[in-house]
Design a protein around this nucleic acid. Structure first.
Length: 305
RNA sequence: GCCAGGAUGGUGGAGCGGUCAAUCACACCACACUGUAAAUGUGGUGCCUUACGGCUACGUAGGUUCGAAUCCUACUCCUGGCA
């Protein structure tokens, strides 16, 4: 269990992603009815718009988005990487996807921005190790991530807001273990693990966690970043020892018409397919969620048109 | 009944003598989505073929032409106007 100023979180917990201070297409009531205890928002997006200081002026993110329960913000490091940034030891220079303007995020500014936004849990600004990284590249990213973590900690004053450090290391056990030791030694309220080795393949994710598991504290949550493309990914990652995980997949896939059904290929059906036009079954027979109890595949197919 | 306009692939709709199996959109099919630049993106979509290639197609039947979805004639059916 994790205690925050906005309530307790019982683990293991899946955290729906609401990047832009909104879990797309879902209301607060929808989320509550499904048992969401905590949601994610993103520092990068809110820093650009409406601006972190403006979120603060508007009373903080909980009031801003009408979510009185726990919120976690990601630092934005992961998003910035998709913008082909210039990364130095100082931080990351990148171009806004909104208007092309130049920006710079450092461990200090990313942390201060998250403090202003006001989430219950904030993440360290890290250098995520991409897929296929060489040992040398991964080592540099790990070292940088560690240096950046120390700088994040310096800015972090309000201990009611929990700061989580992030373990990196790519696919290399020596780097993963070195990183785990370093991050755990900072004695922060929680520990996360990220990078491309986490989230894409369930076996690789479980193996990566196993590599460092003996180094982790028993009394603090482990946040495995970006897990949950398939429902079975969640059970396997929990079995591996994860306490917290998030993924854009449930909401993003649903918006494209892909709905989870454990009996189907890839654990999902594509409700857009013409074969569902007259299908009167629910998405999943043994599910007691509001949608499965009240609507047919035919109706959901119709709504996608 | 007369006059005018029109009939193109699952649908809408381009094309107006050769580079047309036919722009494009939709629909359909497949694939992809990890700490959301994503209610998005990529590919395919007449028939046969792995491919090369072949075959059948632009309302119906003829005609002109080296060559017709494109021009001409008749017919059928739609739409608008006049009676």
């Amino acid at each position: 269990m994790i205690t925050t100023p906005h309530g307790e979180i019982h683990t293991p917990v899946f955290m729906p992603v609401g990047t832009n201070a909104s879990v797309k297409s879902l209301s607060r009531e929808d989320l509550e009815s499904v048992g969401a205890q905590i949601i994610l928002a993103n520092n990068y997006h809110l820093y650009l718009r409406p601006g972190s200081k403006n979120v603060k002026k508007l009373g903080g993110i909980h009031k801003f988005m009408n979510w009185p329960h726990p919120i976690l913000t990601d630092s934005g490091g992961f998003q910035v990487q998709s913008l082909k940034p210039k990364i130095t030891d100082d931080g990351a220079e990148f171009v806004s996807h909104l208007d092309g303007s130049k920006h710079f995020l450092s461990p200090e500014s990313a942390t201060q921005s998250q403090i202003d936004i006001g989430a219950d849990i904030i993440m360290a600004f890290d250098h995520s190790v991409p897929a296929g990284a060489t040992h040398a590249f991964a080592k540099a990213a790990v070292t940088r991530t560690h240096q950046w973590l120390l700088r994040c900690i310096k800015v972090w004053k309000n201990k009611k807001q929990q700061l989580f450090g992030i373990i990196q290391g790519g696919e290399f056990p020596d780097l993963l273990r070195e990183s785990a030791k370093f991050v755990v030694d900072q004695n922060l309220p929680g520990v996360a693990i990220g990078g491309a080795v986490i989230g894409s393949d369930p076996h690789q994710t479980a193996d990566t966690i196993a590599t460092i598991h003996d180094l982790l504290p028993n009394d603090k949550p482990l946040y495995v970043m970006g897990v949950g493309v398939r429902p079975s990914d969640i059970t396997s990652v929990v079995a591996a020892g994860a306490d917290m995980f998030d993924c854009v997949a449930p909401t993003r896939l649903a918006r494209a018409g892909l709905l989870y059904n454990h009996e189907s290929k890839n654990e999902r059906i594509d409700i857009n397919q013409a074969k569902f036009k007259l299908d009167q079954k629910p998405i999943t027979n043994d599910c007691d969620c509001y949608t499965c109890k009240n609507y047919t595949r035919a109706y959901l197919h119709h709504l996608c048109k």
